[in-house]
Write a protein that binds this DNA or RNA. Structure first.
Length: 798
DNA sequence: ACAGTGCAATTTTTT
DNA sequence: ATTGCACTGT
C-alpha cells in the first residue's frame, strides 16, 4: 500500500483552488478502486470519498467508524488533496488518537509523524496556545492545572471571600465553573441568574477571581485550553485566518461528545475551507453530565448548511439477538436521529440475550464467576470477557469473588498513576523548578517532607505575596531576607528556597532524569518514604522510580510535565489473560465476545441521581448507556438483576430495571441463576418474575415483564430499606421463606454458634481463616487478608 | 505542629 | 462500611 506514496507528494499551494483537478482525481479514484478501499461497503466508501464540504457520518455501534475515519485520512493523503500537516483530526481521548495514528500508519505504510495536528481537543488546544500565549496573557511555559489544583485554588478563593466552605464547597464551585467553561462562557457572559445560584451571587465573582488567579499563576485549567483558544481566534482574525489556511481538512471523532466550547472551536476553524467531517452516534452520547451536548450532532445540518449526512447501519460486530435487544431498547428514547442496525453476521446458533435474577449482589457475582469458569472450560479467551458495571462500587464484589476463585481479572480505569500522592508531590517539585510562579505546586511541597513550616509561617508568606502581588516563591525569597519570620522557620524556608534556586540553575545543564532524581533526593522526599514504615511506602518508592523511568522518553522536564498533564493514561501491562471489569462509561469503543451486565435495578441502573437531577434527559442518557453496554457484546450479552443490594452499608431490596421491560422478548431468555432455588427470595413482594419462567415452561419466551407479579413488584418498590439480609440472619421470622437451602441450615442468631475459637473456617469472600472469638452468631476471624467480623452463617467449617 | 476524633458524603470520567 | 475532611486538644 505504501507504493501509493512512492513519489513524494507535492504540497498543494493555497492558490490551488481549481476544484476541477480535485474532482477529476476523485473520479479517477472511483473508476479504479484502490487497495485501501477494499472491503468497504458503499456507505463507508461514500463517507471516505466525500471529502469536500461538511459531512456528518452517523455511525452506529460496530459499523466501522474508526475504519472510515482512518481510511478517509488515507484517501485525502493518497489523492494529494492535502499534506499530512494540513489535516486537523481531533479525538477525545489520547487512546483514540493513538489508535488512529497507528491505523493510519498501517494504512499508508509507516510514517505518520507529519500528522502533527492529530490529537485530542486539549492537546491541540495547548499546542495552539503555546504558540500565541502572550496574546492571551500567558507565558508559553504556562502550567496546566488538574482538578486537584483547581479545587485547592477555589478553596482558597472561597475562604478569602469569608464564605463557609461547608455550605459552599469548592467542589460545587468547580462543577459550576467547569459547566460554564464547557458552554464557552467567560465570566462576563454568564447569565445573571446563574451566577446567583452559588453563594448568594458570589458565583460569577469567584469565577472572575479564579481566572485572574490563573493568569498570575501563569496557568490554565482544562477548560481554558479551549476557551482561551476561542478568545485568541476571536480577538486575532489574522491568526485564525492562518489556521484556516493551514487546516484544509478537519475530522472529528465522537462528535456526540463535544461540548459547546468544542463546538465553537470547531466552527471557528471550519469557517476556512468548510471541509469538516464529524463522525458520531447520537445513541452513544453518555457524557451529558460533563457538558457534552447531544444537540451538537442533532443540529449538524443547520450548523453546516449543505451538509451531507451518511448513515452507517451495517453492524459487523454482534449477533442478531444482541442487535435486536439494543435497537429495541433505544427506540424508547425520543429525540434521536434514528438509525437501525442491520446485522451482518449470520449465526443460526446465536445465543439470545439472557436476563438472570439473583438474590443479592453476592450471588450475582458468584453466578457470573461460575459462568466465566464454564466459558473458560470451553476454551474461551478471558480477554474476550468483560463485566460492565454502572458504578464503580459494584466492582469490589467481583474482585473479592474472583480473588477467592483464583480467576484473573483486571480493572480498567481505577485510580490513576498520576493521581497518587507521591507522584503528585514529585511533580509539584518539578513544576516548581520549571515554573517558579506555580504557587499551587509550591504550597503542596513546601512542608513535605516536614520542614517545620506550619500554618503560621505560610500565612505570613501568603500575606506578603498578596500585599505585594507576588508569587509565593518570590514572596518567600523576600521574607527570608527580613527579620519578620521566626528564626527556625526562616532558616528552614531559606534552605528550601536555596535548593530550588540551585536546581533551577541545573535545569539547562543536567540531564532531566538525573536532575529529577537529584531533586527528590536532596529535598529529602525520597528519604521521607524510606523512613515511613507503613505498608504502602515501598510501593510508593517504586512508583517514584517508575516515574523517573518514564521520563526517559522525553527530552526535557517541561515536555514531560506537559505529557503528564495531558496524557493521563497509564499503559498497564496487560500481558496476561484476564477478565476485564470496568464501568459502562469506560467500555465505550470496546468490544468483547461475552459481556456481563450486572446490576440492572431501578435506582442503580437507571441511576437514581441521573433521574433526580436530569429527569427524562437523565433517563434517556441512562438508556443510551444500556445501549452502549449491550452493543459491546459480539456473541453473548448477559444481564443480571439482584433483588437485594448493599448500598452505603445498608441492605436495600430493589426492583428490576425498567430497561428490562424494554427488551424485545423474542430475543431474550429469562433464566434464573444457577444457584438460586426459585428466585422468590423477596418474600412478601410478590416474588421476582425472573425466577418464574422456570415454572412457566409452557411459554418461556412470552413477555414476562407485563405479568401481574411484575407490576406488583414495581408498585412495591423502595418500600423496604435497611432491611437485614433475611436469608442468613433472620431467625424464626425468615422460616418458611424460599431460601438458599445450603446456607440457611447453618444457624441463626437464636441458636448458639456452631463454631468454636481456634477453628478453621472458609468464607466466600475472604477465603480461609481462624476463629478468634465469638459473640452470639458473630465471629471474629483472622483471614490472610486481615481480621474481620462476620456472621457465622457466612462461613463454612473446614 | 501534629495526632486523634467526629462527621458528612458517597455516579459516571477525560483532558 | 468506608473514607476523606475539618476541627480540637495536647
Amino acid at each position: 500500500m505504501s507504493d501509493l506514496f512512492a513519489s513524494p507528494p507535492t504540497p498543494p499551494t493555497p492558490s490551488d483552488g481549481e476544484p476541477d483537478h480535485q474532482s477529476i482525481r476523485a473520479q479517477l479514484q472511483k473508476m479504479r478502486p484502490v487497495p485501501y478501499m477494499d472491503g468497504l461497503n458503499p456507505e463507508q466508501r461514500d463517507a471516505v470519498e466525500s471529502i469536500d464540504g461538511p459531512l456528518l457520518v452517523l455511525a452506529g455501534a460496530g459499523t466501522g467508524k474508526t475504519r472510515v475515519l482512518t481510511t478517509r485520512i488515507g484517501h485525502i493523503l493518497a489523492t494529494r488533496s492535502a499534506m499530512p500537516w494540513q489535516i486537523l483530526a481531533v479525538t477525545f481521548t489520547n487512546k483514540a488518537a493513538r489508535e488512529m495514528k497507528d491505523r493510519i500508519g498501517n494504512l499508508i505504510g509507516g510514517n505518520v509523524e507529519g500528522m502533527q495536528w492529530l490529537g485530542t481537543f486539549h492537546s491541540i488546544g495547548v499546542k495552539i496556545l503555546r504558540r500565541h500565549a502572550e496574546l492571551v496573557d500567558l507565558k508559553s511555559n504556562f502550567t496546566i492545572l488538574d482538578t486537584d489544583d483547581q479545587l485547592r485554588l477555589m478553596k482558597q478563593l472561597i475562604q478569602a471571600q469569608g464564605l463557609d466552605e461547608k455550605r459552599w464547597p469548592a467542589r460545587q464551585l468547580n462543577t459550576l465553573i467547569d459547566g460554564w467553561k464547557n458552554r464557552g462562557l467567560t465570566p462576563q457572559q454568564v447569565p445573571q441568574d446563574e451566577g446567583y445560584y452559588f453563594a448568594q451571587g458570589h458565583g460569577v465573582k469567584l469565577y472572575t477571581e479564579y481566572q485572574a488567579r490563573l493568569k498570575v499563576l501563569n496557568a490554565c485549567d482544562f477548560g481554558d485550553l479551549l476557551l482561551e483558544c476561542l478568545r485568541l481566534f476571536r480577538e486575532n482574525p489574522d491568526i485564525l485566518a492562518d489556521y484556516h489556511k493551514r487546516f484544509r481538512y478537519i475530522l472529528v471523532d465522537e462528535y456526540q461528545d463535544t461540548n459547546i466550547a468544542q463546538y465553537l472551536w470547531l466552527r471557528l476553524l471550519a469557517q476556512g475551507g468548510n471541509n469538516i467531517c464529524c463522525v458520531g452516534d447520537d445513541d452513544q452520547s453518555i457524557y451529558g453530565w460533563r457538558g457534552a451536548e447531544v444537540d451538537n450532532i442533532l443540529r449538524f445540518e443547520e450548523d453546516f448548511p449543505g451538509a451531507k449526512v451518511i448513515r452507517l447501519e451495517r453492524n459487523y460486530r454482534s449477533t442478531v439477538h444482541i442487535l435486536a435487544a439494543a435497537s429495541h431498547l433505544i427506540t424508547y428514547n425520543e429525540g434521536r436521529l434514528g438509525k437501525t442496525l442491520h446485522p451482518q453476521i449470520e449465526d443460526d446458533d446465536a445465543e439470545k440475550v439472557t436476563v438472570t435474577s439473583a438474590w443479592d449482589s453476592e450471588e450475582e457475582a458468584r453466578t457470573i464467576g461460575e459462568q466465566i469458569e464454564d466459558l473458560q472450560r470451553a476454551k474461551h479467551d478471558l480477554n474476550e470477557i468483560a463485566i460492565l458495571v454502572r458504578a464503580s462500587f459494584q466492582m469490589r464484589e467481583f474482585e473479592d469473588r474472583f480473588i477467592t476463585m483464583g480467576l484473573n481479572y483486571r480493572v480498567i480505569g481505577g485510580p490513576r498513576f498520576y493521581e497518587r500522592a507521591e507522584i503528585r508531590d514529585a511533580l509539584a517539585y518539578f513544576r516548581c523548578v520549571v515554573q517558579p510562579a506555580d504557587d499551587l505546586a509550591f504550597e503542596r511541597i513546601v512542608n513535605t517532607p516536614r520542614r517545620g513550616l506550619g500554618d503560621a509561617t505560610l500565612k505570613q508568606v501568603h500575606d506578603h505575596a498578596r500585599s505585594h502581588g507576588l508569587p509565593l516563591t518570590e514572596a518567600a525569597t523576600d521574607l527570608v531576607q527580613t527579620e519578620e519570620l521566626k528564626p527556625r522557620p526562616r532558616n528552614s524556608l531559606k534552605g528550601v528556597l536555596g535548593q530550588f534556586t540551585h536546581w533551577r540553575t541545573m535545569l539547562a545543564s543536567m540531564k532531566h532524569t538525573e536532575l529529577a532524581e537529584m531533586i527528590l533526593d536532596e529535598s529529602g522526599y525520597t528519604e521521607m518514604w524510606q523512613k515511613d514504615k507503613s505498608a504502602d511506602a515501598p510501593g510508593r518508592l517504586d512508583n517514584l522510580k517508575e516515574l523517573i523511568r518514564s521520563m526517559e522518553e522525553f527530552d526535557s522536564l517541561p515536555s514531560f510535565l506537559e505529557h503528564i498533564a495531558l496524557v493521563m493514561d497509564r499503559d498497564s501491562a496487560q500481558s496476561n489473560e484476564a477478565v476485564s471489569i470496568m464501568t459502562l462509561h469506560s467500555a465505550k469503543g470496546l468490544e468483547f465476545d461475552t459481556v456481563f451486565l450486572p446490576g440492572w435495578e431501578e435506582g442503580l441502573f437507571p441511576h437514581q441521581r441521573a433521574l433526580d437531577e436530569s429527569g427524562t434527559r437523565g433517563l434517556e442518557e441512562e438508556r443510551r448507556l444500556a445501549y452502549v453496554g449491550i452493543t459491546r457484546a459480539k456473541k453473548r450479552a448477559k444481564i443480571y438483576v439482584a433483588s437485594n443490594r448493599r448500598i452505603h452499608g445498608l441492605w436495600q431490596s430493589s426492583v428490576p430495571s425498567r430497561f428490562l421491560d424494554e427488551l424485545p422478548p423474542a430475543h431474550v431468555d429469562v433464566v434464573e441463576s444457577q444457584s438460586t432455588y426459585g428466585g422468590y427470595g423477596n418474600s412478601g413482594v410478590g416474588g421476582s418474575i425472573y425466577g418464574k419462567s422456570r415454572f412457566d415452561s409452557s411459554d418461556p419466551f412470552e413477555n414476562n415483564y407485563d405479568t401481574p407479579g411484575w407490576k406488583r413488584a414495581q408498585n412495591n418498590k423502595a418500600k423496604k430499606t435497611g432491611k437485614p439480609k433475611q436469608r442468613y440472619g433472620g431467625g424464626p421470622a425468615s422460616s418458611g421463606k424460599v431460601i438458599d437451602g445450603e446456607l440457611i441450615a447453618k444457624g441463626t442468631s437464636d441458636t448458639p454458634s456452631l463454631y468454636s475459637v481456634g477453628e478453621r473456617v472458609f468464607h466466600q469472600k475472604f477465603g480461609y481463616g481462624n476463629v478468634k472469638s465469638i459473640e452470639g452468631n458473630k465471629l471474629t476471624v483472622e483471614f490472610s487478608t486481615g481480621t474481620k467480623r462476620v456472621i457465622d452463617s457466612f462461613v463454612e467449617r473446614h
